[in-house]
Write a protein that binds this DNA or RNA. Structure first.
Length: 940
DNA sequence: ACTGCTGCGTAC
DNA sequence: GACGTACGCAGCAGTG
């Protein structure tokens, strides 16, 4: 092979250090040493090696000392924060890893990595060798030419000369001019004040080069022109600073690039290294003990895609942490006895056991995950750890042996024999997510009563922030690898129904579930008993509300599908018109549903200004951006309108009719009871908690939520529930007084902030106060408030200061909550529900700040959740106790929706809000507003 | 075809 | 980085 086809692969190690460090979660090894940057570097180098085969490779790092730029400009890189300690600790290990991976390291005293790379690339080009530079630093774009390519390994972006033009708007040879004009904040190199990428590109397009721009400086108008003229003396030096050198003397470090041969991975060193830093997957790989998934983990190149491991140490893990807490003796049976029950006698024997048992673990196996559709395939029981029965009732696959009923007892027989026990509220049942099993039994006309314990809810109350699936609970708390559903039934297209599984295998899986559920309960329940607040929440809120939720889900909601269909058709028509207009405005057809294509049209072709970027660096096209652009151009408005209609159609008017259950003719959502960390419910399939309400357009969808003939919809929602809770918890006298007096709280707040009488508050002032009130609940900063209100940050800060001056109790509460969270690692609701915050003391800056905001929000959001759950329980007790025909059909965080027979309307409209307001006595009155109508929109 | 991620938008 | 908690759509890239 001739030299002309060879490749030199250079890695800008210094730039990747920081990127890997910031991009990855705070990984640590067993000794608590930070390893995130190490992990990222290794990943990146391996991926590069794979993607870009090269004859010569090197990883280049900055040297420690001063360089010519420091001499040229003493303030160079001034103000740059020193390297974070956690990253500094990883430098040495990274060098070690790079060497072990077989990469030559190049560090040249007195020369920055950029200049080393520039010089090596130049040498290679001179010899006809192609160069690929891997970096995250845009400055190196100046090196790009026909022989030198840039690649950003994090994003996968590859920059050749046209790529540079596409990204920066100027060709590579103008990048230096471009950078000189805009400056480099990171290196503390100023450019022309008020000149950013936009202006720089504009000027370069107009004048050609920096020199020409400087020559023509007198002809440039406005403030930027003035700024340019004032920086004419500086610009040559800026240019020198941002220019990457290509003629450095590297002889101290490396003769020339031909010396940069790959050295090959040193497996022995890698094994030692992976083991020391706890990279288990790579370790298995390196030791040849390869698991099926080992490669997938090692391949993972997307930093954000790497699953964030839970933090080390038990301090923030809550009482449910298992790693520190080995299984108690009674949860670890000496032997495992699982029995397949296929005879009447064996069933009788188990019935005898469960009738006397103080608690029986029960689990169902079914044909579907959809609780309303699922048919019983078998059920399992356990009353002692290590012992369980599986009773198959509907296995039918080819693997299931012949005989009548394939050797099983029939479903009808088993259910009739078990019915007295299943329906006996005095026989206590335990399960994992019994709400689901309860639906399954209901599908066969059996009412599951005596739901006493639920391991999913135990886990949720003990540590809402963790996973509550049985497999992960078993692994965490019992150190037990359970058989997973996927292992038994497969996944994806090749998944088969549980009824196809042979009885032996089915028993291994199903009996284990009941057994493990019992053992998990014995592990977790004592921890609940030990904390009175948690015990209260579990016994008096979560368990009872799970029973109510099952009934609400089963009740379902009646939907006017025809009405939604008509709306869909209309929306479709209007979307077509908007689409045509958008194509016209853009001068070409494109996919209006693709943010990527919209970006292409708006920012590349039409060259509209990029307002902000998304997390991944692409120009954002979200509502805020389009609103801004719509001030000056017609197309963004069309896109906004299209988006709005498209959302309504795809998510609501098209989707809801498809969700109607054919048997009941109604829509049955599922309420996730162990999903939201704060204690709120979450509604899925479909989500009935985000039906539009803010726009006229959207509210029409609520008109399709109707009552059955002879019934009406009644809706009651708590008024300002979270602010009331804030008043209660903080005890702020001013806020308490406002609520006690029944004031309009936003108006009251506006009066305080703006120092005017209540009657003098303008609608604008009230709007501000409302945003501030909501912002407080969410822990909003001055920055957030400013951007929300479109005002200066100073002004926002002023309002917040005014607020805290007028409501000092709230200020005190905020600070106290942060403090409490840091001290105990969790915050609590009024009723004792806990939210653990693992990031509150550790983690990096943004994560910790996020945890602080969550700490402030959770007591309010969580107490509101507690209150409405108590209401749901009270309402259900009342309806059933009085034998009324009214049904609860939806919960939307602070709102309950009921379907009410006409005859009960007045009663419900009186009693429902009374109940909701009397479930707790706080230092502020609770208020619930009730409405009724033939549909949800009218009732709301 | 499936999976998982991204960007966006809906609710409270 | 900047406002908490959710769910779900369409697009898209990677994988089989």
């Amino acid at each position: 092979m001739s030299d002309s086809q060879k490749t030199l692969l250079l890695v800008d190690g210094s730039s990747y250090l920081y990127r890997a460090y910031h991009a990855l979660p705070d990984l640590r090894n067993g000794e608590g040493l930070p390893t995130g940057a190490i992990y990222g570097m290794i990943n990146m180098l391996r991926k590069l090696r794979n993607d870009f085969p090269a004859e010569y490779i090197a990883c280049v790092f900055d040297a420690k000392g001063k360089t010519f730029r420091d001499a040229l400009y003493p303030a160079y890189k001034e103000h740059r924060p020193s390297m974070p300690e956690d990253l500094a600790k990883q430098i040495e290990p990274i060098h070690e890893a790079v060497r072990a991976l077989g990469w030559p390291i190049v560090v040249v005293e007195g020369v920055e990595a950029d200049d080393v790379i520039g010089t090596l690339a130049c040498q290679a080009t001179a010899q006809g060798v192609r160069t690929v530079v891997s970096t995250g630093d845009k400055d190196l774009a100046q090196l790009v030419n026909d022989h030198v390519t840039l690649v950003n390994t994090m994003s996968g972006e590859v920059l050749d000369p046209p790529g540079v033009v596409a990204k920066f708007g100027v060709p590579p040879e103008r990048i230096v001019d471009y950078l000189s004009l805009i400056g480099d904040a990171v290196d503390n190199v100023p450019g022309v004040p008020k000149v950013g990428p936009k202006t720089a590109v504009k000027w370069l397009a107009e004048y050609g080069t920096l020199d020409s721009i400087m020559a023509g400086a007198d002809g440039i108008k406005g403030v930027v022109g003035e700024n340019l003229r004032n920086t004419l003396d500086w610009l040559p030096r800026a240019r020198e600073l941002v220019t990457v050198k290509t003629d450095c003397d590297l002889s101290d470090a490396v003769a020339d690039f031909h010396a940069l041969r790959e050295l090959g991975e040193d497996n022995e060193k890698l094994v030692a290294f992976f083991s020391r830093y706890g990279f288990k997957t790579w370790l298995r790989e390196a030791t040849g003990e390869s698991l099926p998934n080992a490669r997938a983990a090692a391949r993972s190149s997307r930093a954000g895609a790497a699953p964030a491991p839970s933090p080390q140490g038990g301090l923030f893990d809550g009482p449910a942490d298992a790693s520190a807490d080995l299984p108690a003796p009674d949860t670890t049976p000496a032997e495992i006895r699982y029995e397949t029950v296929t005879t009447e006698a064996a069933l009788d024997a188990w019935i005898a056991r469960i009738i006397d048992a103080p608690l029986t673990a029960i689990d169902t196996e079914t044909t579907s995950l959809d609780p309303m559709q699922a048919q019983l395939v078998g059920l399992s029981l356990s009353v002692e750890p290590g012992e369980a029965a599986y009773i198959p009732v509907a296995h039918r696959g080819p693997d299931v042996a012949g005989m009548e009923n394939h050797g099983q007892l029939s479903r009808e027989y088993v259910l009739e024999r078990l019915r007295p026990w299943l329906e006996d509220p005095a026989r206590p049942k335990l399960g994992q997510h019994l709400k689901y099993d309860s639906h399954v039994f209901a599908n066969h006309g059996v009412k599951l009563l005596g739901i006493a314990q639920d391991t999913m809810l135990e886990s949720y109350v003990l540590a809402s922030h963790r996973n509550h699936g049985m497999d992960s609970l078993a692994e965490r708390l019992l150190n037990l690898k359970t058989l997973t559903y996927e292992e038994v039934c497969g996944k994806g297209a090749s998944q088969i129904g549980f009824d196809q599984i042979d009885l032996q295998r089915a028993t291994e899986y199903a009996a284990e579930d009941a057994d493990v559920t019992l053992r998990l309960h014995r592990k977790m329940h004592p921890q609940l008993e030990a904390a009175s607040g948690l015990k209260y929440v579990y016994e008096n809120i979560e368990i009872p509300v799970s029973v109510v939720l099952q009934k609400i889900e089963r009740n379902g909601v009646l939907i006017d599908a025809a009405r939604l269909g008509a709306q869909s058709a209309e929306l479709g028509q209007r979307m077509m018109a908007l689409e045509a207009a958008a194509f016209e405005a853009a001068g070409q057809p494109f996919n209006l549903g693709s943010p990527k294509q919209i970006g292409e049209i708006l920012f590349t072709q039409m060259k509209l200004p990029v307002v902000k970027k998304t997390a991944s660096g692409a120009p954002s096209t979200d509502e805020e951006v389009l609103q801004k652009l719509a001030e000056d151009y017609p197309l963004p408005k069309l896109l906004l309108d299209y988006r709005g209609l498209s959302k309504l159609k795809s998510t609501y008017t098209d989707k809801l009719p498809k969700m109607v259950n054919p048997q009941t003719g109604r829509v049955h959502t599922s309420y996730g009871q162990a999903t939201a960390v704060t204690g709120r419910l979450a509604s899925t399939e479909p989500n009935l908690q985000n039906i539009p309400v803010r726009t006229e357009e959207g509210r029409r969808i609520r008109e399709a939520f109707i009552a059955a003939p002879g019934n009406v919809i009644v809706s009651a929602d708590y008024s300002q529930i979270e602010l009331r809770i804030m008043a209660h918890i903080s005890g702020d006298e001013n806020l308490l007084r406002a609520f006690a007096n029944g004031e309009d709280i936003h108006r009251a707040t506006a009066g305080e902030i703006f120092g005017v009488e209540r009657e003098a508050v303008s609608s604008e002032q009230r709007r501000y106060a409302k945003v501030i009130n909501f912002g407080l609940i969410y822990g909003m900063s001055a920055f957030g408030l400013a951007s929300n209100l479109g005002i200066e940050r100073e002004a926002a800060k002023h309002y917040i200061d005014r607020y805290f001056m007028r409501y000092p109790g709230v200020a005190h509460y905020m600070e106290e909550t942060r403090q409490t969270a840091r001290e105990q690692g969790y915050v609590e609701t009024v009723f004792g529900r806990r939210l653990w915050l693992p990031d509150i003391n550790g983690g990096n800056g943004p994560r910790r700040q996020g945890a602080e905001r969550a700490a402030i929000n959770a007591p309010m959001q969580g107490t509101a959740a507690d209150l409405i759950k108590l209401s749901m329980i009270a309402v259900q007790d009342w309806l059933e106790g009085d034998n009324l025909g009214t049904r609860q059909i939806m919960q939307v965080h602070d709102e309950l929706v009921l379907e009410v027979p006409q005859a009960e309307l007045e009663l419900v409209k009186t009693r429902l809000p009374e109940l909701m307001c009397s479930v707790a006595t706080l230092r502020v009155p609770l208020v619930a507003e009730v409405g009724s109508g033939s549909n949800w929109e009218e009732a709301h």
